[in-house]
Amino acid sequence: MEIKQWYEGEKPWIIAGPCSAETEEQMMETVEGLVNQGITTIRAGIWKPRTRPNSFEGVGKKAFPWIKKAKEIFKVQFAIEVASAQHVEMALENDIDILWVGARTTVNPFNVQEIADALKNATDKTVFVKNPINPDLNLWIGALERFHQAGITKLGAIHRGFSTYQESIYRNIPLWQIPIDLKSRYPELLLICDPSHIAGKRDLLFEIAQKAMNLRYDGLIIESHRDPAAAWSDAAQQLTPANLRVLLDKLQIRDLTFPSEKFQNELDHFRDEIDETDKELLEVLARRLELVKKVGTYKKDKNVAIFQLERWNTILQNRPEWGNQLNLNPEFVKTLYQAIHDESIRIQTDIYHEGE
């Protein structure tokens, strides 16, 4: 997949608007408020895929005349979510500028292909693909590839976080490494962060938005409503246009280039030290895995099972504690040892299969 740069506007690109288009009055007042704050790309949900029935699922095609009126009066672009070929057809008939595929749709390649096929005659449209609800980078890339093969050149990705059963302060945990890996593979791909759906709460929006700017995201898509407390959906995570402006003004936009030769030289010095440390780290890791091979051979000779739960529980308990004493994040240490353990199991499994 060859992605080319296509967005020539100012970065970060700010897309904002209500979670849902509710009434004509709500739409017009919210859009006017956003335009007054300098925002000219508006988002609004027309069809709302909800987890459970009997929730507000959007007003549907009823909203298109409101959008048309807002575009004519305020000279804005509009973005909506589409989840079927029929949605695409209606969006194109009503001159919607930007279409995005939601997280629940991205998980289903059949649905994605149906939408991509419907867009083959509308290759001038901008299409964003949200990450799937489960943390699967290949599924996200696969969805992007389907639109790329359909001839969509104005293609971007939206990071909205991932669903999880584990306790979290976030509505959807960010798992920042996944979008970073996506951007690393496709540097020209426009990457937008959705702090609203990651945070789920207004008081966490700035933290998420700033982290995205620190990581060189190309823009933000944030929910904004004239009266968030009265919103028909996602009331807890929306901001008024004025409060959105306050958040945006607080953001620190990081430089993409180095400020001076002195800075570059100092940075190179630190990186050289990191490189040497990484070599030492890999040497230590190689020694550890050599010991794992010896353990595997010994267990095979004595007809002992590979996986020893008591030993693994001991490692899970004391390694994070050791790391904490060295000012290392215990969760990071736990994740590191999970990867080491997976490789150890693989090595010992290969030893058990030798000679079979």
Rank of each mutant, 00 (worst) to 15 (best):
M1S: 13
W6S: 06
E8C: 07
E10G: 05
P12G: 08
I15D: 03
I15H: 10
A16Q: 05
C19M: 03
A21W: 06
G33K: 02
R43W: 00
A44Y: 06
A44G: 15
G45S: 09
K48C: 01
R50A: 07
R52F: 02
E57S: 15
G58C: 02
G60R: 01
A63I: 00
K69E: 05
E72D: 12
E72M: 08
I73R: 11
I73Q: 08
V76P: 07
V82D: 00
A85D: 08
H87Q: 01
E89G: 03
L92V: 13
W100C: 05
A103Y: 01
A103N: 07
R104A: 09
T105W: 00
T106S: 13
V107T: 04
N108L: 01
P109D: 01
Q113Y: 11
Q113G: 12
E114T: 02
N121P: 04
V127I: 03
F128G: 12
W140V: 05
A143N: 07
A150Y: 02
I152A: 04
I152F: 00
G156I: 00
A157T: 05
I158W: 01
R160Y: 03
R160Q: 04
G161T: 03
F162C: 11
S168C: 08
I169A: 14
Y170G: 04
W176P: 01
K183D: 00
R185G: 14
L189A: 02
H197P: 03
A199T: 10
L204E: 06
E207D: 09
A212W: 00
N214Q: 14
N214G: 14
R216P: 04
G219M: 04
G219S: 05
I221V: 15
E223N: 02
R226D: 10
A229R: 04
A230M: 09
W232K: 15
A235H: 10
Q238G: 05
L239K: 03
T240V: 00
P241G: 08
L247Y: 04
K250Y: 10
L251D: 07
Q252Y: 08
R254H: 15
L256K: 06
T257Y: 09
F258W: 10
P259E: 15
P259N: 12
S260D: 11
E261Q: 15
E261L: 15
F263C: 08
F263L: 07
F263R: 08
F270K: 13
D272M: 13
K279A: 08
K279E: 12
E283M: 09
R287D: 13
R287Q: 12
E290W: 06
T297G: 09
Y298D: 13
Y298H: 12
K299T: 13
F307Q: 14
L309W: 08
W312S: 14
N318F: 15
E321D: 09
Q325K: 12
L326K: 08
N327F: 11
F332L: 15
H341G: 11
E343L: 15
I347Q: 05
E354L: 14
E356W: 14
